[in-house]
Amino acid sequence: MSLQSLGASIGSEVVRGLRESGLAILRPLSAFARGTGDHLILLAQCMVWLFRRPFRARLFVQAMAYHGIGSLPIILLVGTFTGMVTALQSVNAFRLLKAESFSGSAVGLALAVELGPVLTALMLSGRVGAGIATELGTMRITEQIDALEAMAVSPIQYLATPRVVAGFLMTPLLTLIFFVVGMMGAYFVAVVVLGVDHGAFVENFRWHVDPVHVAQGLIKSAFFGLAVALIGCRQGYSATGGGRGVGLATTRAVVGGSVTVIAIDYFLTDILLALLPVMPQ
Protein backbone atom coordinates (compact mmCIF):
# COMPACT_ATOMS: atom_id res chain seq x y z
CA MET A 1 0.00 0.00 0.00
CA SER A 2 1.42 3.38 -1.00
CA LEU A 3 1.94 6.06 1.60
CA GLN A 4 -0.71 8.20 -0.10
CA SER A 5 -3.40 5.50 -0.03
CA LEU A 6 -2.48 4.61 3.56
CA GLY A 7 -2.90 8.27 4.49
CA ALA A 8 -6.25 8.44 2.72
CA SER A 9 -7.41 5.26 4.47
CA ILE A 10 -6.39 6.55 7.90
CA GLY A 11 -8.02 9.89 7.08
CA SER A 12 -11.33 8.28 6.14
CA GLU A 13 -11.23 6.12 9.29
CA VAL A 14 -10.64 9.20 11.43
CA VAL A 15 -13.49 11.07 9.71
CA ARG A 16 -15.79 8.07 10.18
CA GLY A 17 -14.78 7.75 13.82
CA LEU A 18 -15.38 11.43 14.42
CA ARG A 19 -18.74 11.28 12.67
CA GLU A 20 -19.84 8.24 14.66
CA SER A 21 -18.68 9.62 17.99
CA GLY A 22 -20.28 12.95 17.10
CA LEU A 23 -23.56 11.18 16.34
CA ALA A 24 -23.27 9.19 19.56
CA ILE A 25 -22.97 12.46 21.48
CA LEU A 26 -25.87 14.03 19.60
CA ARG A 27 -28.20 11.04 19.96
CA PRO A 28 -29.19 11.63 23.62
CA LEU A 29 -29.55 15.35 22.87
CA SER A 30 -31.88 14.66 19.97
CA ALA A 31 -33.87 12.17 22.10
CA PHE A 32 -34.15 14.80 24.85
CA ALA A 33 -35.29 17.45 22.37
CA ARG A 34 -37.83 15.05 20.85
CA GLY A 35 -39.16 14.03 24.28
CA THR A 36 -39.46 17.65 25.42
CA GLY A 37 -41.25 18.51 22.18
CA ASP A 38 -43.69 15.61 22.61
CA HIS A 39 -44.55 16.77 26.12
CA LEU A 40 -45.05 20.37 25.02
CA ILE A 41 -47.30 19.24 22.17
CA LEU A 42 -49.37 17.19 24.62
CA LEU A 43 -49.60 20.23 26.92
CA ALA A 44 -50.80 22.40 24.02
CA GLN A 45 -53.40 19.76 23.07
CA CYS A 46 -54.61 19.60 26.67
CA MET A 47 -55.03 23.38 26.75
CA VAL A 48 -56.94 23.39 23.46
CA TRP A 49 -59.26 20.59 24.59
CA LEU A 50 -59.83 22.26 27.97
CA PHE A 51 -61.94 24.94 26.31
CA ARG A 52 -63.86 22.69 23.89
CA ARG A 53 -67.19 21.02 24.49
CA PRO A 54 -68.29 18.75 26.04
CA PHE A 55 -67.15 19.84 29.51
CA ARG A 56 -67.06 16.80 31.77
CA ALA A 57 -66.92 18.27 35.29
CA ARG A 58 -67.16 14.78 36.82
CA LEU A 59 -63.79 13.80 35.32
CA PHE A 60 -62.08 16.90 36.73
CA VAL A 61 -63.55 16.26 40.19
CA GLN A 62 -62.42 12.61 40.05
CA ALA A 63 -58.90 13.59 38.95
CA MET A 64 -58.65 16.23 41.68
CA ALA A 65 -59.86 13.76 44.31
CA TYR A 66 -57.26 11.22 43.18
CA HIS A 67 -54.47 13.80 43.03
CA GLY A 68 -55.44 15.78 46.13
CA ILE A 69 -57.41 13.76 48.66
CA GLY A 70 -55.71 10.50 47.69
CA SER A 71 -52.27 12.03 48.30
CA LEU A 72 -53.20 13.69 51.59
CA PRO A 73 -52.04 10.93 54.01
CA ILE A 74 -48.58 10.68 52.46
CA ILE A 75 -48.20 14.49 52.40
CA LEU A 76 -49.26 14.79 56.05
CA LEU A 77 -46.76 12.13 57.10
CA VAL A 78 -43.83 13.34 55.02
CA GLY A 79 -44.55 17.00 55.83
CA THR A 80 -44.63 16.39 59.58
CA PHE A 81 -41.43 14.36 59.68
CA THR A 82 -39.61 16.74 57.33
CA GLY A 83 -40.44 19.65 59.62
CA MET A 84 -39.36 17.63 62.66
CA VAL A 85 -36.00 16.52 61.28
CA THR A 86 -35.23 19.96 59.85
CA ALA A 87 -35.93 21.51 63.26
CA LEU A 88 -33.78 18.89 64.97
CA GLN A 89 -30.83 19.65 62.68
CA SER A 90 -31.23 23.41 62.72
CA VAL A 91 -31.64 23.70 66.52
CA ASN A 92 -28.50 21.60 67.00
CA ALA A 93 -26.59 23.66 64.45
CA PHE A 94 -27.75 27.05 65.81
CA ARG A 95 -27.02 25.88 69.37
CA LEU A 96 -23.30 25.96 68.49
CA LEU A 97 -23.74 29.72 67.93
CA LYS A 98 -26.16 30.13 70.86
CA ALA A 99 -28.76 31.25 68.35
CA GLU A 100 -31.28 28.39 68.42
CA SER A 101 -34.20 30.84 68.39
CA PHE A 102 -33.41 31.30 64.67
CA SER A 103 -34.44 27.70 64.00
CA GLY A 104 -38.06 28.88 63.53
CA SER A 105 -37.12 31.15 60.65
CA ALA A 106 -34.61 28.69 59.18
CA VAL A 107 -37.13 25.83 59.10
CA GLY A 108 -39.89 28.15 57.90
CA LEU A 109 -37.84 29.47 55.01
CA ALA A 110 -36.58 26.02 54.01
CA LEU A 111 -40.09 24.54 54.04
CA ALA A 112 -41.73 27.48 52.27
CA VAL A 113 -39.39 27.95 49.34
CA GLU A 114 -37.73 24.56 48.74
CA LEU A 115 -38.51 21.57 50.93
CA GLY A 116 -42.30 21.94 50.76
CA PRO A 117 -42.69 22.33 46.99
CA VAL A 118 -39.92 19.93 45.99
CA LEU A 119 -40.69 17.09 48.43
CA THR A 120 -44.43 17.36 47.73
CA ALA A 121 -43.73 17.11 44.01
CA LEU A 122 -41.37 14.16 44.48
CA MET A 123 -43.99 12.34 46.55
CA LEU A 124 -46.57 13.06 43.85
CA SER A 125 -44.22 11.85 41.15
CA GLY A 126 -44.02 8.49 42.92
CA ARG A 127 -47.73 8.26 43.63
CA VAL A 128 -49.68 10.25 41.03
CA GLY A 129 -47.19 10.19 38.12
CA ALA A 130 -46.76 6.43 38.46
CA GLY A 131 -50.51 5.91 38.88
CA ILE A 132 -51.38 7.92 35.77
CA ALA A 133 -48.72 6.20 33.65
CA THR A 134 -49.85 2.74 34.77
CA GLU A 135 -53.55 3.46 34.22
CA LEU A 136 -53.13 5.07 30.81
CA GLY A 137 -50.49 2.54 29.77
CA THR A 138 -52.84 -0.33 30.59
CA MET A 139 -55.63 1.43 28.71
CA ARG A 140 -53.31 1.85 25.72
CA ILE A 141 -52.18 -1.78 25.49
CA THR A 142 -55.70 -3.15 26.05
CA GLU A 143 -57.01 -0.89 23.23
CA GLN A 144 -59.25 1.12 25.58
CA ILE A 145 -57.73 4.35 24.23
CA ASP A 146 -58.39 3.15 20.66
CA ALA A 147 -61.95 2.37 21.73
CA LEU A 148 -62.39 5.95 22.97
CA GLU A 149 -61.21 7.28 19.61
CA ALA A 150 -63.41 4.82 17.72
CA MET A 151 -66.37 6.12 19.76
CA ALA A 152 -65.50 9.67 18.67
CA VAL A 153 -64.27 10.70 22.14
CA SER A 154 -60.91 12.49 22.27
CA PRO A 155 -58.59 10.57 24.63
CA ILE A 156 -56.61 13.77 25.22
CA GLN A 157 -59.75 15.58 26.36
CA TYR A 158 -61.15 12.61 28.29
CA LEU A 159 -57.99 11.27 29.94
CA ALA A 160 -55.12 13.76 29.87
CA THR A 161 -56.73 17.20 30.30
CA PRO A 162 -58.46 16.50 33.65
CA ARG A 163 -55.30 14.93 35.08
CA VAL A 164 -53.02 17.78 33.99
CA VAL A 165 -55.45 20.41 35.33
CA ALA A 166 -55.74 18.47 38.61
CA GLY A 167 -51.93 18.39 38.87
CA PHE A 168 -51.71 22.15 38.30
CA LEU A 169 -54.43 23.05 40.82
CA MET A 170 -54.02 20.48 43.58
CA THR A 171 -50.25 20.47 44.04
CA PRO A 172 -50.09 24.02 45.51
CA LEU A 173 -52.82 23.05 48.00
CA LEU A 174 -50.88 19.97 49.02
CA THR A 175 -47.70 22.05 49.29
CA LEU A 176 -49.47 24.49 51.59
CA ILE A 177 -50.62 21.60 53.77
CA PHE A 178 -47.06 20.20 53.74
CA PHE A 179 -45.77 23.60 54.91
CA VAL A 180 -48.34 23.93 57.70
CA VAL A 181 -47.89 20.43 59.13
CA GLY A 182 -44.12 20.75 58.66
CA MET A 183 -44.09 23.90 60.80
CA MET A 184 -46.23 22.15 63.41
CA GLY A 185 -43.74 19.28 63.53
CA ALA A 186 -40.85 21.73 63.71
CA TYR A 187 -42.50 23.64 66.57
CA PHE A 188 -43.08 20.42 68.48
CA VAL A 189 -39.44 19.30 68.17
CA ALA A 190 -37.87 22.73 68.72
CA VAL A 191 -40.07 24.11 71.51
CA VAL A 192 -41.56 21.06 73.24
CA VAL A 193 -38.72 18.54 72.85
CA LEU A 194 -35.57 20.68 72.65
CA GLY A 195 -36.70 23.56 74.86
CA VAL A 196 -36.33 26.49 72.45
CA ASP A 197 -38.22 29.52 73.71
CA HIS A 198 -41.76 29.66 72.28
CA GLY A 199 -41.77 33.45 71.77
CA ALA A 200 -38.35 33.56 70.11
CA PHE A 201 -39.22 30.66 67.77
CA VAL A 202 -42.51 32.18 66.65
CA GLU A 203 -41.26 35.77 66.44
CA ASN A 204 -38.22 34.80 64.34
CA PHE A 205 -40.47 32.79 62.06
CA ARG A 206 -42.89 35.74 61.63
CA TRP A 207 -40.05 38.19 61.12
CA HIS A 208 -38.13 36.26 58.45
CA VAL A 209 -40.73 34.20 56.58
CA ASP A 210 -42.54 36.58 54.27
CA PRO A 211 -45.81 35.73 52.50
CA VAL A 212 -43.81 36.23 49.28
CA HIS A 213 -41.69 33.20 50.21
CA VAL A 214 -44.82 31.10 50.59
CA ALA A 215 -46.16 32.47 47.29
CA GLN A 216 -42.91 31.58 45.52
CA GLY A 217 -43.19 28.01 46.81
CA LEU A 218 -46.83 27.68 45.79
CA ILE A 219 -46.24 29.05 42.29
CA LYS A 220 -43.34 26.65 41.80
CA SER A 221 -45.42 23.75 43.06
CA ALA A 222 -48.17 24.45 40.50
CA PHE A 223 -45.63 23.98 37.70
CA PHE A 224 -44.16 20.90 39.40
CA GLY A 225 -47.64 19.36 39.59
CA LEU A 226 -48.28 20.18 35.95
CA ALA A 227 -44.97 18.56 34.95
CA VAL A 228 -45.57 15.40 37.02
CA ALA A 229 -49.09 14.86 35.62
CA LEU A 230 -48.04 15.72 32.06
CA ILE A 231 -45.11 13.28 32.12
CA GLY A 232 -47.33 10.54 33.60
CA CYS A 233 -49.91 11.09 30.86
CA ARG A 234 -47.35 11.20 28.05
CA GLN A 235 -45.54 8.05 29.20
CA GLY A 236 -48.76 6.10 29.72
CA TYR A 237 -50.27 7.33 26.48
CA SER A 238 -47.28 6.14 24.44
CA ALA A 239 -46.80 2.78 26.21
CA THR A 240 -46.28 -0.20 23.90
CA GLY A 241 -45.53 -3.88 24.16
CA GLY A 242 -47.65 -5.37 26.92
CA GLY A 243 -46.93 -5.52 30.65
CA ARG A 244 -43.25 -4.76 30.21
CA GLY A 245 -44.14 -1.64 28.25
CA VAL A 246 -46.45 -0.45 31.03
CA GLY A 247 -43.69 -1.10 33.58
CA LEU A 248 -41.21 0.92 31.51
CA ALA A 249 -43.72 3.74 31.11
CA THR A 250 -44.25 3.85 34.87
CA THR A 251 -40.52 3.87 35.56
CA ARG A 252 -40.01 6.67 33.02
CA ALA A 253 -42.85 8.65 34.55
CA VAL A 254 -41.38 8.45 38.07
CA VAL A 255 -37.76 9.07 37.07
CA GLY A 256 -38.63 11.69 34.45
CA GLY A 257 -41.05 13.44 36.79
CA SER A 258 -38.55 13.55 39.69
CA VAL A 259 -35.63 14.76 37.57
CA THR A 260 -37.79 17.36 35.84
CA VAL A 261 -39.00 18.74 39.18
CA ILE A 262 -35.43 19.19 40.43
CA ALA A 263 -34.27 20.67 37.11
CA ILE A 264 -37.09 23.18 36.62
CA ASP A 265 -36.85 24.12 40.30
CA TYR A 266 -33.61 25.96 39.58
CA PHE A 267 -34.98 27.89 36.61
CA LEU A 268 -38.31 28.72 38.28
CA THR A 269 -36.51 29.89 41.41
CA ASP A 270 -34.29 32.13 39.33
CA ILE A 271 -37.31 33.63 37.55
CA LEU A 272 -39.37 34.03 40.72
CA LEU A 273 -36.54 35.71 42.64
CA ALA A 274 -36.48 38.30 39.87
CA LEU A 275 -40.26 38.67 39.60
CA LEU A 276 -41.15 38.44 43.30
CA PRO A 277 -38.24 39.88 45.27
CA VAL A 278 -38.50 39.85 49.05
CA MET A 279 -38.15 43.36 50.46
CA PRO A 280 -35.73 43.65 53.40
CA GLN A 281 -37.57 44.31 56.65
Partner: peptide, 18 residues
Protein backbone atom coordinates in the same frame (compact mmCIF):
# COMPACT_ATOMS: atom_id res chain seq x y z
CA UNK B 1 -66.41 12.77 15.31
CA UNK B 2 -69.78 12.81 13.48
CA UNK B 3 -68.45 10.46 10.80
CA UNK B 4 -67.33 7.86 13.38
CA UNK B 5 -70.88 7.54 14.63
CA UNK B 6 -71.58 5.53 11.46
CA UNK B 7 -69.38 2.82 12.93
CA UNK B 8 -69.40 0.44 15.83
CA UNK B 9 -66.16 -1.35 16.56
CA UNK B 10 -65.69 -4.61 18.42
CA UNK B 11 -62.07 -4.95 19.50
CA UNK B 12 -60.00 -8.11 19.69
CA UNK B 13 -59.96 -8.14 23.51
CA UNK B 14 -63.25 -6.18 23.69
CA UNK B 15 -61.48 -3.04 25.04
CA UNK B 16 -64.06 -2.56 27.79
CA UNK B 17 -63.29 0.16 30.32
CA UNK B 18 -62.05 -1.63 33.45
Amino acid sequence: ARFRRKFGMVFQMAALFD
